[in-house]
Design a protein around this nucleic acid. Structure first.
Lengths: 367, 367
DNA sequence: GTGAAAGCGCTAACAT
DNA sequence: ATGTTAGCGCTTTCAC
């Protein structure tokens, strides 16, 4: 028998006898084997005692012994080993298109709140709305064996999601959906939001209303544009007076570019309905650029009610989306899916409401 | 028994009997053994061929065979297994105090950019500046065997960090540091930033300048306040004219509360230097509340130059902090630490500069 | 109720 | 250069 081994068991003996809190400052973290040894039971028994789901398979007395041993050693289960063994990780991957857009931190909070109560952890990845980056982050998360995904990055035709669906990976979509329904999706009721916005504008006397739509490759861009056209028509506004200009992305720059195109071709509009608040920000810049007052010359409505838009000048009228709920509801759906193995892509649509602030006003006669 | 439950178990039974399509669409992902078999080599050889670091130990011909086999099978390495085997995970944990503060997404981007080129992935966790939540997230990440941490959540006395240091866990601090230097830290040169801000104010004729400091439990709050006092003294401003009011947190609400206290006790100040932009936002609200014009009655300076503050009315004068670089530099330091196992907590201090916008103006005679 | 043993997928000595 | 073997730390049959 080697010196090292003898020495080590001497230490253990002494520790057990003296009932000392033992924790080396630098040595490798204790394993379940250490706990088992200290408690005087087999690894397997320790495992059962430590796991809430199986702790009833063990006598209360040994359970306590194991638990106190674990506490004494400051035992922390190695989730990597556990994952390898169970092929589940109690973590879920969250893919967010752009964390710098203030609405997504709220979504994340919703997710974490809903997940935390069930012992799951969120692993967040930012994709910058780049398909390559999305794929890379997806793979990275997958290779870490996340149990499922919460994705706010879907495109209407999304090869990544198609593959994920083929492979039977659990996914819940947030906000954006695919054309072919593959996964459950939690979204806002964009049509209703659009309708409320247009109604507000027509009530104010506007008859020439433009929409700066989000990218048509995304369900939100496409859907809101569609809702815009339908609602406008329903209000008797001819297509010629309700132009739609598509933005290349949901960014301030893209919004500004689209707004310039709009005014070049359609200088007579009296109101703009932006595809989201970022686009609205860009439009607001262009309004200033062209010497147009908001709301006196042109009314402006955003979408999302993201943080800080109430602090703009003028404060932005916008469609409020309950982002926290979006995240929480999606997380709930995912957990539900784990439990029931139910493969029916249900859709949850959350109600939206218009928040009227200072960027909308009566249509001016002269324009 | 409810309908729903019966229905669900019927489904399960049917699936099991029919050896269902689920199994066919989602057979387990291929392992390295599958790749090896297809390539006609041993697992270990396949492993060597697949790993860039060891691929030279294998003949080019077999390397190609293995690679193509891997491609044919769409093989994705199981990082959980790899981690268990190597006790390294090529992931690093990132702890962020508050993702809704727009500066942190920038930090994260810096981190990801610096990490990505080295094959590391960031696992992000939001802590809401709550010690409990921070501890929980830290443990969760640790049990997933992250190789190290990037933390922007440090408190001046931080038991969590003390423990982490004892356990020899690799950490690099971002922005905030501990009183006792435990880990490398990347921060902005707050003293210089403060000095620039005060100089700007005195140049404009201000002699009664208040500081709404961040929490003194955080190095940023404490350090900036200290720099404020020193610089003010150096400019010949007496302490009585340069009050410091501490905010309970870096939030708009806390900033507003502090601003109210300030004006109640010290109505004569002509300029406010906020501990960060969020606090400045709160101060701005209070200015409006009290009928004071900014900058005509009171000048206001923020700290960080976070997104959107240029869109306020008035646009906020603030100290710009290079957040992207903060993150990137910290990530670089951490990777460096992996390589050299060097345990000297070096400090990197990045230069800051004042961005003058519309919230600062000449001191008014009457005030 | 508890122990023994196998195995999750991979890497890393150690052979050959 | 490649095959063999032995784990990494945990869970989970299967015995007893």
């Amino acid at each position: 028998m080697s010196n090292a081994v003898r020495h080590s068991s001497d230490n253990q003996l002494r520790d057990r006898l003296q009932n000392l809190p033992i924790m080396s400052t630098m040595g490798k973290p204790p394993t379940i084997a250490d706990v088992a040894k200290l408690a005087g039971v087999h690894k397997a028994t320790a495992s059962r005692a430590l796991n809430p789901r199986t702790s009833n398979q063990v006598t209360p007395a040994t359970a306590r012994r194991v638990l106190t041993a674990a506490k004494r050693l400051h035992y922390q289960p190695n989730n990597v080993a556990r994952s390898l063994s169970t092929s589940r990780s109690a973590t879920i991957g969250v893919l967010i298109p752009d964390l710098t857009n203030p609405l997504f931190p709220l979504v994340l909070r919703g997710i974490e709140d809903a997940l935390g109560t069930h012992g799951y952890t969120a692993l967040l990845a930012n994709t910058d709305d780049s398909p390559e980056r999305t794929q890379a982050q997806f793979d990275a998360l997958l290779s870490r064996k996340v149990d499922g995904f919460l994705m706010a990055t879907a495109r209407r035709e999304d090869p990544l999601l198609a593959r994920a669906h083929e492979h039977g990976i659990a996914v819940v979509l947030i906000n954006r959906s695919t054309d072919v329904p593959l996964f459950p999706v939690v979204t806002g009721d964009d049509s209703a939001g659009m309708a409320a916005a247009i109604e507000h504008l027509t009530d104010l006397g506007h008859r020439r209303i433009a929409h700066l739509s989000g990218p048509s490759t995304m369900s939100t861009g496409f859907g809101r544009a569609q809702a815009f056209r339908q609602t406008a028509a329903a209000h008797g506004l001819p297509p010629a007076d309700t132009p739609v200009v598509e933005c290349s992305s949901y960014t301030e720059d893209a919004g500004a570019a689209a707004a310039r195109r709009l005014f070049d071709e359609n200088p007579a509009v009296t109101a703009i309905l932006a595809g989201n608040d970022m686009i609205a920000l860009g439009a607001l810049d262009v309004l200033r650029e062209r010497g147009l007052d908001c709301p006196d010359d042109v009314s402006l409505i955003g979408f999302n009610d993201m943080r800080f838009v109430d602090k703009l000048t003028p404060p932005l009228t916008t469609v409020h989306v309950p982002h926290h709920s979006l995240g929480a509801e999606a997380a709930r759906l995912l957990l539900e899916q784990f439990a029931s193995a139910d493969r029916v892509p249900k859709t949850v649509s959350l109600p939206l409401h218009l928040v009227v602030r200072g960027s909308t006003g009566p249509a001016r006669a002269g324009r």
